[in-house]
């Protein structure tokens, strides 16, 4: 079950904690992986760790032209693109009263507009081949909101609406489009918190711990697999029970 042998997958933000875990999990299931991100050295290190079936495809998705070029590069390197994982994202947290237009626009550009452009470009080949998987990494805050993250919450909620619209457009072509909405995952970002802060966070999670990148990666493997072929337009919440949606 859940094998991805011979499939090609592009993972954006693969130099990060969640993206790296998704890349490793896909690779372990037999997929050819395209590793994208802005940090070339981290991508190269991951590619070296994985060995064969790994391609480094650097891209800065803040550049509107980068998305289309990235899909072309992925198709060039791997022959075609079966699975797109929109994982890259950034935050510019601050209370709305202090939020600059630039903070809003940067987050919307990278976290929502870039995924749309990547989907649009990837779908051309998928529609032709009558197969494909698109998985976007949303967030619990897209459903619940979070103070200081009006921009990020809007972008992540936007991914859900976009994915549901795309899911309906391409369902007849055997392509599924889904969202994974992680809760609090232990990454470099949460490592910066104090022990007390981490404990307070864990106390809000029924399953009693922060999530691991691997928890998200397992959900991504599932949605990418043939076994998930009857699931589209869905949001899979991976949050330890913190929000039961």
């Amino acid at each position: 079950m859940f094998r991805l042998d011979g499939r090609t997958a592009l993972i954006t933000g693969a130099s990060g904690g969640i993206g790296g875990a998704i890349a490793r999990a896909f690779h372990a299931q037999g997929a050819v992986v395209g590793l994208s991100g802005t940090r070339r050295e981290a991508l190269a290190a991951l590619a070296e760790e994985l060995g064969d079936r790994a391609h480094v495809l650097p891209a800065d998705l803040a550049d509107p032209a980068a998305a289309e070029a990235l899909i072309a590069a992925a198709e060039g390197a791997m022959g075609r693109l079966d699975i797109l994982v929109n994982n890259a994202g950034l935050t510019r947290d601050t209370l709305a009263l202090r939020m600059k237009d630039e903070d809003w626009e940067t987050v919307l550009a990278v976290d929502l507009s870039a995924p749309f452009r990547l989907c649009r470009a990837a779908l051309k080949g998928m529609v032709k081949r009558r197969a494909g998987r698109i998985i976007s990494i949303g967030s619990i805050v897209g459903a619940t909101g979070n103070p200081g993250q009006a921009n990020y919450a809007a972008a992540k909620a936007g991914l859900v609406g976009m994915s549901k619209a795309l899911a309906q457009e391409v369902a007849a072509r055997g392509i599924t489009v889904n969202v994974i909405a992680p809760g609090f995952i232990a990454t470099a970002m949460t490592d910066a918190l104090s022990e007390d802060q981490r404990a307070a966070l864990a106390a809000r999670i029924p399953l009693g711990r922060l999530g691991r990148p691997e928890d998200v990666a397992a959900a991504a493997v599932y949605l990418a697999s043939d076994e998930a072929g009857w699931i589209t337009g869905a949001v899979l919440h991976v949050n330890g029970g913190m929000a039961m949606l």
Binding site: K124, V127, K128, V170, R173
Partner: peptide
């Protein structure tokens, strides 16, 4: 053809 087919044809 469905609506997506017509878009594909145009492309």
């Amino acid at each position: 053809a469905d609506s997506l087919d017509t878009v594909e044809l145009v492309m």
